[in-house]
Nucleic acid binder design. Sequence first.
DNA 1: CCCGGGATAGGAAACGTTTTCTTGGCGGGA
DNA 2: TCCCGCCAAGAAAACGTTTCCTATCCCGGG
Lengths: 338, 338
Amino acid sequence: MGGNLKSVARAAGVSLATASRVLSGSTYSVSAELRARVLAVAEELDYVPNAQARALISGSTRTVGMLVGDVGDPYFHAMIHGVHEVAAQESCLVTVMSTGRDPERELASFRELQSHGATIVIVAGSGVNDPAYQAGLEVRIRSQGRTGRTVLMGRHELDETLEAIHVEVDNVDAGRVLGRHLAEHGHRRVGVLSGSSIVSSTSDRIAGLAEGLGVAPEVVEVPQTRDGGYAGTGTLLRREPGITAIVGTADQMAIGALSYCADHDIGVPDELSVAGCNDIWVCRDLTPGLTTVHMPLEEMGAAALRLALGSDPGCRQSFPVQLVVRGSTGPAPERDQG
Amino acid sequence: MGGNLKSVARAAGVSLATASRVLSGSTYSVSAELRARVLAVAEELDYVPNAQARALISGSTRTVGMLVGDVGDPYFHAMIHGVHEVAAQESCLVTVMSTGRDPERELASFRELQSHGATIVIVAGSGVNDPAYQAGLEVRIRSQGRTGRTVLMGRHELDETLEAIHVEVDNVDAGRVLGRHLAEHGHRRVGVLSGSSIVSSTSDRIAGLAEGLGVAPEVVEVPQTRDGGYAGTGTLLRREPGITAIVGTADQMAIGALSYCADHDIGVPDELSVAGCNDIWVCRDLTPGLTTVHMPLEEMGAAALRLALGSDPGCRQSFPVQLVVRGSTGPAPERDQG
DNA sequence: CCCGGGATAGGAAACGTTTTCTTGGCGGGA
DNA sequence: TCCCGCCAAGAAAACGTTTCCTATCCCGGG
């Protein structure tokens, strides 16, 4: 019945201890004869060891938990991909949870991952500017610190004494280079398709954009999806007809903007420039190609897990961003009124 | 030190049993005073229950395992998204493993998921035509059947008595409708960018394509990625210059083909028609829009988990495919030689 | 006044492992 | 020949829970 170790031991005519020693890869020496018998029976019975019970003793499972804002978002998808890459090499299991960008749900999910024995927890959704959330997160990190590691991706305003690993990318700079690029092309009135502005990566990008541009853009907050970007573009153009460029805080919204323009015969970049952020894989295959800011999301995911598996408990790794100019941005069109 | 139940019980001055009864949501009645004391202490100590230990007793964790060919592939990404959607509702944890489309690795991963207590295992990579693999999979399904459920997505040639849930989509038909569409436009010589042909969904699509076309296409096997499609298009056009249409067995390869054409001044669809399969989200945002066959991948993922959570142990649900004609396909160009 | 029973608490077994500790047997050195 | 020590095997404790079972208390009915 139960394909447990006891039944294997019984069938092999050995004690629980020897069966365990053979099957768990222990260094304890077992006679060749018994070893062979145990292996044969295990094979025969298709014995599958119970990782739960193992974890109970060793105290650690090779399980890494990952908290993302939205599994469907290409941004998180790239990071998840990077994490899986090294997880496969290191034979770790990856459990991903979606928080819907809800801080409270993120904390609850963090707790659940801990409960399920995640030795490593990667918090991929960047921080939000809420004291209650930050306090809650500190509690979780401290608790996690007793037995495992926490990796924070993106900016988090937390106690520096916390033993967390930071994997960062300069979102302010990302916005800034994009802003400068547009300013150089004469754009002054710019619309922004923004994802949820409570997450710091979004607000950082917008802040950087304003800085690079030298002027505050017109921001509309939309669902961080292609359709959100499509709809938001309409809103933006209706509200501010003088806009000469539209920036999405994530590529998929910019892609929605491109499609809106195609559907409404708005020339890109002649009449309107469009730019995104993250440089997801498909950006270069669009027509025109989408100008965006490249972020090494996969590498960041991979680095997150690699650092967590390493020996350094508290460390910080930063990744550079890079402006990628493609066909979707160009000079601002001449207007009657500057 | 250890934030375990024993320390909570001790700190609250109650027995292990009562502490458990309060914190595990048992129906056993506990006096209001003790209940309050336990809850306060648990809060105070930030007690996180050990799911491993719980699972050891109850025998089941709310964990669903998912086996995919490649986490980075948009095709699997969509399915994963669907699974996560209902997992969040049903408060399940999802653990995804990549098999790299290697049958042997798939079986090993299946085993590992079982070992880690996955009550539900969703095998998302479709079957491969290898007796050893099929036998191995049957063993795993039978073993899984004792305590949990297995969901097979796609065609699997397995023993009908196996208690597995099947979520299917007719890949042959997908190829067929695409083939007919191209044939109606006068295409006779068609190139195929094929992913790994040992997986049945790929070979089914190609078989259907040939049937709908009425003639065997020229197939080149490439990595199932955008870059694979890009490179394969070059190979195909060099090998068979007379080709008037190229079909990717997955959209990302067709997208690579589109970009190859854009880079080499090949007019789409005037000189060459391009089509894909799956209808990933970005297809409609390309220029020209990519003609493809829509598959409800997210719904299929969601259905997989929903069925597995339901009461019916063996059942089968099929999803329809639908041709989506966009701008990337058109009449075959006139040639000197038919 | 005594006894039965419901309500509430705690003790202890159980889940499937790993690992420490104990034991028995054997060979080799004195 | 005797004893020490090593090797291989098994018994049992431990991991953190849940739950069954027993024990105590108090109340009401007879």
